[in-house]
């Protein structure tokens, strides 16, 4: 579904990604793990069009998307839930969700989509009229995810969805991610919480200094000495 080939990305003169290749298949959960500064967010931003790769190609459903502006990429069915949520804090939960459906394709079916989102996140329905800034951290993360789903994406990109959340809320977030896959949405996720992520993901890529150093099935990765040492603390 998503095919990234030999991508190099720069920040000015500094190269942040080196020859990255990865694939995400239909209805898969693929995780990107790695230390801070490894280039995970840079890679996601390159895919969703916020950054342009200097070389390499990115294909989504058989079409080249590298070089397209980000609102075109949203329209094609990739939704990016950014790190730090970036909600419209002085707008209500309902309005934040509507903003997620802003593209003309999603706008027509926004009422039905909103109901579906409330199905996945019942708490948002209770909070529909409240301003986003009055929500708890966990609720805000759910709103950010819900807003991402409002564009009716085929591929959802989550950047650190469990960041700053209490463990119990984290469990909820991971449960939702699993249920999204059951609804047929493909997921690409970055996480600090490596053990939990490897539990729910099918495959994972390990990034270090802008390069992919390991990849494979999650069960296999959990056995790798390097992963155990660096991320699981074993």
């Amino acid at each position: 579904m998503l095919e990234v080939q030999n991508v190099n990305t720069f920040y000015g003169k500094v190269q942040a990604l080196w020859d990255i290749s990865l694939t995400v298949g239909e209805a898969e959960i693929v995780a990107l793990v790695g230390a801070n500064g490894a280039g995970k967010t840079t890679l996601l931003n390159t895919i969703s069009g916020l950054l342009q790769p200097a070389s390499g190609t990115i294909e989504f459903m058989g079409q080249r998307i590298d070089g397209l502006p980000s609102h075109k990429i949203v329209e094609m069915g990739i939704s990016h839930v950014p790190e730090g949520r970036r909600l419209f804090t002085d707008m209500s939960v309902h309005e934040n969700l509507e903003m997620g459906a802003y593209t003309s394709r999603a706008w027509k079916s926004r009422h039905e989509t909103e109901k579906e989102v409330y199905g996945s996140f019942p708490i948002l329905k209770e909070r529909a009229g409240q301003l986003a800034r009055t929500l708890s951290g966990g609720e805000q993360q759910m709103l950010a995810m819900g807003r991402g789903l409002m564009s009716r994406p085929k591929l959802c990109i989550f950047d650190e969805p469990s960041y700053g959340l209490a463990p119990i809320v984290m469990t909820e977030v991971f449960d939702v991610i699993k249920s999204l896959r059951e609804q047929g949405i493909t997921i690409l996720i970055i996480e600090q919480n490596v053990p939990r992520t490897l539990e729910i993901a099918d495959r994972a890529y390990v990034l270090e200094n802008g390069r992919i150093v390991l990849e494979g099935n999650c069960e296999k990765l959990l056995e790798e000495e390097m992963v155990k040492k660096a991320y699981l603390g074993l």
Partner: peptide, 23 residues
């Protein structure tokens, strides 16, 4: 209107508005 919603989203967070597909 949807237009007004877009305008408010710009006041709130211009980057996030652009990312939601607002011109």
């Amino acid at each position: 209107s949807k237009f007004g919603l877009a305008l408010r989203s710009i006041g709130e967070n211009e980057e996030a508005a652009a990312h939601s597909g607002v011109n």
